[in-house]
Amino acid sequence: MTAATQTPMLAARNLSCVRGTQTLFTDLSLQLDAGQWLYLQGENGAGKTSLLRILAGLALPAAGSVHWQAQPISNQRSEYHADMLYLGHHASLKEDLTLTENLRSLIAMDGLKVSDAAIQDALTRMGLAKRQHLPARVLSAGQKRRGLLVRLLLRPAKLWLLDEPFNALDANAIVDLQECLKAHLKDGGMIVLTSHQTPDLGSDTAGFVLSLSRGRA
């Protein structure tokens, strides 16, 4: 579906996904190269999240395989995880910890070191500077979502897998996020995202749309 190159960065071959008795998709292949993004489209339950989870390596496909830099991801879990950032629709924040503590612990558990000043800076860029010392449970859904998206700024990763990143965000934050995504693509990053609203990442970036509809892709 994308321009064929010798070794695409991310390639999925003949994926199928079965949930219970229902086959969500079969024989799905895709490839993605540096600077390209893929927008997954489809009705509720069409398998967008399932596909993202398979690409992230959280779920195993019923058939087929996912390759990162020509290697199956199951053979190089640690390397792949270092290059990949998956943000699901959970807040992934501990309710009792503040945003700073949450981010610090997530980063430390990734084996990375980021200074408190960098965390502070990233929180300011997402407009959360005033909220950083509040426990996450008192934040609104949109603020939690932003808190999670701060990880995009803090964690170096080539491939971003984003499940409904625009959910619960206000208009300004959506614009900010789209700028952030564009900058990532310009730096040679890759993005796979699902959304119910069509993302606008500019005409100068290479984007592709994959529509999933029930039973077939």
């Binding site: 959280l58 270092a82 997530l106 990734d110």
Partner: peptide, 8 residues
């Protein structure tokens, strides 16, 4: 989930 996706 995030822990499971950690490079560590």
């Amino acid at each position: 989930e995030q822990m499971a996706l950690s490079p560590e």
